[in-house]
Amino acid sequence: MLGNVFQKFSGGCMMVFRRQGEVVQFLGTAFLVHEEGYLLSVSHILPEEGQLMVVPGEVGSEFAPISQETVTSIPVKVVRRSLERDIALLKMDQHIGIRMPDHFIGTATSSLIGNSVMALGFAFGHQALHNLVAMNAVVSAKVISNNQTRILLFDSMIHHGDRGGPLVSVEDGLIIGIINGRFDPQEASKEYTDGRNTVETNTNISYAVAIDYGVDLMEKEGLKPH
């Protein structure tokens, strides 16, 4: 079942880069959500300056080089952002033939605590390693953040390159979240405590923003989610 989830979504996950002058910098992960070349990612990895581009990774389950000497880049632009929810909708600047699976976007409300999920992202892109990495986890908690954002906690330690990738429900094979970062309990609790009685915590818990906010951005752009 896990392998089927990976095969379904691996082709739609892409590396995000910024070109500024002669410098090309890896930023994180994005994933396709519409056949007209739209992708979702997290806003905080996408700077306002420089040319953004996405690069497809190697598709399939065969052994592949950990770094690619040449890549095919596709220019993209940010068409909508939600700074409050920390997500962004991107669009490819050129038309390419894209085939999307039917019914692949779910809702975070349907996932139960304890359900299996798969996190997908280019975990080590900042180290110039271009492999898509799949991580198995479970939904550890469903919480509302300080700014009233619905987030999913899951028990896998994501890396910086995973940010912007999809969190997929293994049970039904639907995307339920957009991977954002590692969960910081001290940051989350700062409005409720003065810090004197808190204990510093190293945790392997990460979090994803509910995909429902990404669907909202798509609908504002006039797109019908699958």
Rank of each mutant, 00 (worst) to 15 (best):
A88R: 06
D194P: 00
H226D: 07
V5C: 00
V117I: 05
V54M: 09
Q68K: 13
H159W: 10
Y207M: 07
E221S: 13
D172G: 04
V143K: 13
I178K: 01
V5N: 00
H103F: 03
L217Y: 14
T72W: 07
H126Q: 10
A134K: 06
H103K: 10
Y207P: 07
D93Y: 05
R81I: 05
M100G: 08
Q127F: 06
S145V: 09
I113R: 10
N180A: 11
S111K: 06
L89V: 05
T193Y: 07
V215K: 13
S169I: 06
V170I: 11
D155Y: 05
A64R: 12
E219D: 03
V170L: 04
T109A: 15
G125A: 11
D172E: 08
H103V: 04
G214S: 14
S61F: 08
D86G: 15
P225A: 06
I151N: 02
S73I: 03
V168G: 01
F183K: 01
L223T: 02
D172R: 08
M218Q: 02
I178Y: 11
D216R: 08
L174K: 15
S82E: 06
H160C: 10
V24I: 13
Y213N: 13
A208D: 03
G195C: 06
V5F: 00
P47K: 04
I144F: 10
F124R: 12
C13Y: 00
G50V: 11
L90A: 05
K190Y: 05
H95I: 15
E36D: 12
I98H: 03
P101M: 09
Q127L: 11
Y213P: 07
L40E: 07
L90N: 01
L174I: 02
A30E: 07
Q94M: 08
V143Q: 13
I175W: 05
I66W: 07
D155G: 07
H103Y: 04
V42K: 15
H159K: 15
T149G: 05
S145W: 00
H159Q: 15
P166R: 07
K224E: 01
Y207K: 08
V170G: 00
V133I: 15
E69C: 00
I66H: 14
I176G: 04
T29M: 06
F183I: 05
A123S: 12
R81Q: 10
D194W: 03
K8I: 09
M1Q: 13
I205T: 09
V79A: 07
I87H: 09
N4G: 14
E48W: 09
Q127I: 01
M92V: 14
F104T: 03
T198Q: 12
I98T: 11
L223S: 04
T203Q: 10
V139R: 09
A119Y: 03
H130P: 08
D102M: 08
L174R: 15
R182G: 14
I96M: 11
I45G: 10
G164R: 14
G3A: 13
S82K: 12
A134I: 06
K77F: 03
V139W: 06
F124V: 02
N146I: 13
N147K: 09
A208I: 08
L217D: 08
A108V: 11
F6R: 09
A64F: 00
I105W: 01
I178S: 04
A123D: 05
S10H: 05
E171T: 02
